[in-house]
Amino acid sequence: MSALPTQRWSKLEIGFWLIPMVAFFVFPKYLTLGSQILIAALFALSLDLILGYARIISLGHAAFFGIGAYTAGLLAKYGWGEPISGLVAAAAVATLTGLVTSFLVVRGQDLTRLMVTLGIGLMFYEIANQASWLTGGVDGLSGVEMKKLFGVFSFGLDGRTAYLYSLAVLFVVFCFARTLVRSPFGLSLRGIREGERRMPAIGASVPRKLIAVYTVGAGIAGVAGALLAQTTQFVGIDSLGFPRSAELMIMLILGGTGYLYGALLGAALFMLLQDYLSNLNPVYWQFWLGLLLVLIVLFARGGLMGGFIALRRRFARGRS
């Protein structure tokens, strides 16, 4: 790893990003599901930054998602329904919260971090629950009224605006994350991942870098939450809850950590599977989902991306 990795986009990547655009025209009836997949992908991306690149296992990441969602939702409820400034505000609040809590998270090992993040997440959940005069408590925040995007496109039943809006935000944030992980900062994170104790020897402050990446991850999660609040015009308290953090973790591991694309693939596969299976059998679909997860672990270590890379390697070896 002598030179910086290239920032150029490969054909495979460009092809990947064409898929959601083509999907918009091919599946006009599935755009609501599509927009929620895109939001989940963005959320998974934010966790990949901190889990895939900094090896901080977080089971409380939904805290930032929920904070973003409540920020955007409350702004819109009390008259500030302009979507893009709502996103920015949500990102700011989530980033700040991320920064404040990051100091608690940086200490300790895997299991400790897991539980500290979990504990922080549960505390935010309780706060939202107690402050029901503001958040609506367990009944959720309703009455979120969005203005038209750019004053032109309204968020309607067909989900067109929601889909394109989510896709655009996902792409912009993805470009940012991609640049980040390929920068010198991103490389030093990779160094931490591979050998946390060796990094100080080459003059890198580990905690400060971890704090930075945790904060960025929190901010992006906030954007994802805000997107969900804006496109569904409702914020449920479950957006802060532990099940959401756990589900997110499943999506990311399913896709493979530390590639960015793994997050997107994992979220898409998980959501599509869930939708498909629960349509087949609304009562026992979880069984088949669980079985698939088990099979994937048994046959493709490191998630979809891990399996994909192993396959490619085998293919290349077969040719040479």
Binding site: G140, D158, L228, T232, G236, D238
Partner: peptide
Amino acid sequence: APETTKRIAQDLIV
């Protein structure tokens, strides 16, 4: 999950 309920309702209608 509320957003799922809403999505399903939208899907069912559309």
